[in-house]
Amino acid sequence: MSVSIDIAGLRPERVVVVPSPLAELGTALHALAESGHHPGLRGWATSVTTRLDPHLADRMCEADFLWRTTFSDLFLPCAGVPGGTLPGATLAEELDLLDKLTDEQFVDAALEFTCALPYATPSQDVLADAELRRRALELAAARGPQQLRFSQRLLDDPPRIRTWLRQFLQDCDEAFFADTWSRLRHQLAADARHRTDLLRRKGLAEALTSISAAVVLDEAAGRITIDKLRQGHSLIRNGSLLLVPTSLGWPHLMVLHRHGWQPVLHYPVSSPEPASPPSVEQLTLRMTALSHPVRMQLCRNLARSTYTTSELVQIHGMTAPEISRHLSVLKKAGLITTRRRGRYVLYQLDVTAVARLGSDFLEALLR
């Protein structure tokens, strides 16, 4: 299981290491919403939340599914703007890039975590197709009334939601992120200079290995492979390969590979990762209780959010009985919890139980 990026024919100068203030704000919102993924940031998160205006704190909950799972591709809009666009130097510049996404791009990216829409294949225009809209709202309803309300507003009036999101991000910047960014940007700029120097002196393979041992370059095949508990593929045509450092992101090693967008590797600048972390294959051998690869992939989904059986069926392309059997095995092992919302049963990974099995496995799930 891995995500691959086809870089055949990519010129060296089209590999760019550059910080992104908007991506770091997305990571900050994720860390505030999902502190269990980032135990090392609990002090910072507590400091921020205790000083937050209650009204802004409430607004954070309106669409937190855009950053709670990991964070939406909307926080890297440069990847969706044609022509190999780079992140802006300031948050204001990046928000201007967000405005350059078409309504179709914006809606497609925003619905990713509310409706589990296809990610790595050409998207269909949900704004123009009544049946796709009906299906999107049905899937959103399974996630809860909050997601349904957001999806309805988004599909009815995309410009209104775009305005709301921009104002929300500006308010977060004023409330806490400007101060955080002023402290982090120097570290991120220094890391970008270091990786760029490695690129020039020792080549792409050395630079990628310095980011994580989970990232491997096959120079003969012209392909980068990222060892993750998911499948995906991206192809660079006329754009660039962006390497975006984050100070707040560990243990997440994110790969943006949305169809039609330029690929982005969003990597933590520091981590307690050992020099040779165990591969997914090694983890599979160790974790005999989770020996089936499909169940490992299910755990990856359920570590990030709650899902219904029907959503997991769509994501994994399996039948409902097959998914139910795998969920039954995980539940019997005490690795997932369930709760009912109306006629829907929502499943979620018990992260604490998995952590007791081994930090290497948990880190791979969150990579």
Results as ranks from 00 to 15, higher is better:
Glu24His: 10
Leu198Met: 14
Pro268Thr: 00
Asp227Met: 09
Pro122Met: 00
Arg356Lys: 15
Ala110Asn: 04
Ser4Gly: 11
Leu335Val: 09
Val126Lys: 05
Thr337Cys: 09
Tyr119Lys: 08
Arg59Pro: 05
Asp191Pro: 01
Gly222His: 04
Ala220Glu: 14
Arg258Ser: 10
Arg42Thr: 13
Leu298Gly: 03
Pro272Leu: 04
Arg42Val: 12
Arg237His: 12
His194Asn: 06
Leu265His: 10
Cys61His: 05
Glu219Asp: 12
Leu312Lys: 03
Phe71Gly: 03
Val264Ile: 11
Ser151Thr: 14
Asp99Met: 12
Ala214Tyr: 06
Arg195Thr: 06
Leu229Ile: 11
Leu139Arg: 12
Arg295Phe: 03
Leu188Ile: 00
Arg367Leu: 07
Gly83Asp: 00
Ile315Met: 12
His252Arg: 14
Tyr347Ala: 05
Asn238Arg: 15
Asp350His: 02
Ala23Ser: 12
Gly239Tyr: 04
Val48Met: 00
Arg195Gly: 00
Gly317Ile: 11
Gln262Ala: 04
Leu22Cys: 04
Leu10Gln: 03
Ser234His: 13
Trp44Asn: 02
Val18Gly: 04
Arg160Phe: 08
Gly260Leu: 02
Gly43Met: 10
Ala33Ser: 09
Leu165Glu: 00
Asp125Met: 07
Ala275Leu: 15
His37Gly: 03
Gly342His: 08
Leu91Val: 11
Ser2Gly: 06
Pro159Met: 07
Lys228Leu: 15
Met287Gly: 11
Leu76Ser: 09
Gly83Ser: 05
Asp227Ile: 09
Lys331His: 13
Leu184Asn: 01
Thr85Tyr: 08
Arg51Ser: 14
Leu204Arg: 02
Val345His: 06
Val354Met: 13
Leu86Ala: 12
Leu32Arg: 02
Ala178Phe: 03
Val329Asp: 02
Gly239Arg: 00
Leu362Gln: 01
His194Val: 07
His292Ile: 10
Gln297Lys: 13
Asp227His: 09
Asn301Lys: 11
Pro82Tyr: 08
Leu169Arg: 06
Arg11Glu: 15
Gln167Asn: 13
Leu98Ser: 01
Ala120Val: 00
Pro277Thr: 06
Ala136Leu: 05
Pro19Tyr: 08
Leu366Trp: 10
Leu32Asn: 00
Ala275Tyr: 04
Arg149Glu: 11
Ala136Tyr: 06
Gly249Glu: 05
Pro251Val: 09
His30Met: 09
Ala89Phe: 05
Tyr344Val: 09
Trp261Ser: 05
Leu298Arg: 08
Ser2Asp: 12
Thr209Val: 07
Ala289Val: 15
Ala355Met: 01
Ala355Lys: 03
Arg59Cys: 00
Thr209Asn: 07
Pro19Val: 07
Ala28His: 06
Glu13His: 14
Cys61Thr: 15
Pro293Trp: 08
Ala57Ser: 08
Tyr344Ile: 06
Gln147Ile: 10
Asp125Pro: 02
Arg200Pro: 02
Val16Ile: 12
Leu184Ile: 07
Ser212Pro: 01
Ser72Val: 07
His194Ser: 14
Asp64Gln: 14
Val345Ser: 09
Thr85Ser: 02
